[in-house]
Amino acid sequence: MQTPLYIDNQTALETLCEELKSASCIALDTEFLREKTYSARLCLIQVATEQTIACIDPFKLGNLDPFMEILFDRHIIKILHSARQDLEIFYHLSHKVPGPIFDTQIAATLLGLPDQCGYATLVKQLLTIELDKTQTRTDWNQRPLDTAQLNYAADDVRYLIQLYPLILQQLHTSGRQDWLNEDFIHLEDPDIYQLPLDTLWKKVSGHGRLKGKQLAIVKQLAGWREKHARTQDLPRKWVLADDVIIALARMAPEHPQQLEKIRGLNNSRSKNRGEEILAEIRAAHDMPKEQWPLIPTKKTSQDEDVIIDLLMSVLKFLAEKNGISPAILGTRKDVEKLLTHDAQPTLMQGWRKHIAGNQLEEILSGQQILKIQNRKLQLESITSNQK
C-alpha cells in the first residue's frame, strides 16, 4: 500500500501543487468537525492522482493558496464522493465553488446502486475491497495524527481515483456518460451553500403544524438565530433550538416573565437575549399579513390522483427498464409536482429527466400512449398523423 505524503509545511505544499498542475483529474476528500461551530472546521485535506496520495494538514500551514489554485483550475476534474459538504467548506473558505466536479455517489445511481450509496459500499462493489473502519470515530481536531489515522484518511482518495475510470467506462457502455452533466454543474452553484435568511424558516422542524402569524414568528426567529450563529460561529441549536422556536411561535410571549415558562430558554446564552427574542416576536406581529410565510395547501383533484397513479406505474416501469430503484427515480410527490407544473420538478432535472421526466411529459401532452401487449406495459410514440 502506498504511504501518503504528509504535507505540513509551505514548501511541501508548493511542491505537491506543482505536480498536481499536470493532472487531468484528482480525487479529493476532507475531514472536518462542526459539532461545536456554525461553520465546519477543516482538519485535513486528502488528495490523490494515479501516482501520488497526500494528506494536507491545514493546521500546520500558513495558507492554502497554492492548493486553492488547483481547486479552481478548470482543466482539472475534481472527483469526490458525496461532494456537497466538502464543496461547502471550500466555498466558505474562498466564496467560490471548485470545479469541474464528478461526484461518484451521484454517478453510482446510474449504475443501479442504491440512492446515496456509501463510499465503502461502492469500493466493495466495484473494487471488491473492504475498507478499514477502525478510525471512524477519530477526532481530526487533535494533533499529532499517527500513521494509522493518515492511512485511514488516505483510503478515502486512494480508491476514489481508481473508481473514476471504472464508473466512466460503465456510464459510457450504457450511453449515459452525458446524463450527469447538469447534476455536476448544479454542484458548482454558490446559492446551494448559502441559504437566504428569509427562507430559513422552512428548515425549522415542526413549522408545518403552524400557520399565519405563528409562521411569521418562526421566520423572524429563524433569521435572528442565523445571524447570531454565523457571527459567533455557534451551531444553530446552541443559539435557539427548533423546538424552542416552535414553542415561542405558539405562545407568542410579550414579557420577559413569560419566557421563563418555556423549557429550553433557561440556558445562559438564550436567557441573556430575552429582549432580542421579544423584539423579533413584536416584529412578526407588526408584519403585514401579505408578508406572512405560506405553506402550500393545494390538493390534487380526484382526476389528478388517478393520473398520478397511472404515472407512478410508468415511473416504476421506466425504473426497472433502466435498472434503477423506483424510489430513487422519483416519489409520488415528485410526480405530483410534475403534473401541477411546479417551478422546478425533480423529475425534469439532471439524469432523472433523461430516464423518466421527458417521457412522462410526453404522456401528459399526448405524444406517447400506454399499451399492454403480451401482458407487458409498453410506451408508444404518437405521430402527428395519428393525433
Rank of each mutant, 00 (worst) to 15 (best):
M1H: 10
M1T: 11
L5V: 08
I7F: 05
C25D: 10
L28H: 07
R34T: 07
R41N: 08
I45L: 01
I53N: 12
D57Y: 11
D65C: 13
F67Y: 11
F72P: 07
D73L: 06
I76P: 00
R84Y: 07
Y91A: 05
Y91W: 07
H92W: 12
I101Y: 04
Y119R: 04
D132S: 13
R137E: 14
P144L: 04
A153W: 02
D156Y: 03
Y159D: 05
P165Q: 08
P165M: 04
Q169H: 12
R176T: 03
Q177D: 15
D183F: 00
E188V: 13
D189A: 12
D189W: 08
P190S: 10
D191T: 12
I192K: 08
D198H: 13
L210E: 06
Q214W: 01
A222P: 08
W224C: 01
R225L: 03
R225Y: 02
L240D: 00
I246G: 02
L248S: 05
S270E: 14
I277W: 03
L278T: 13
D286N: 15
P293W: 00
L294S: 09
L294P: 01
T297M: 02
I308K: 00
D309L: 00
L318F: 11
A319E: 09
E320R: 14
T331D: 07
K333F: 00
V335S: 01
A343I: 12
R352E: 13
K353M: 15
E362Q: 14
I363G: 10
Q367F: 06
I369S: 12
K371I: 12
T383Q: 08
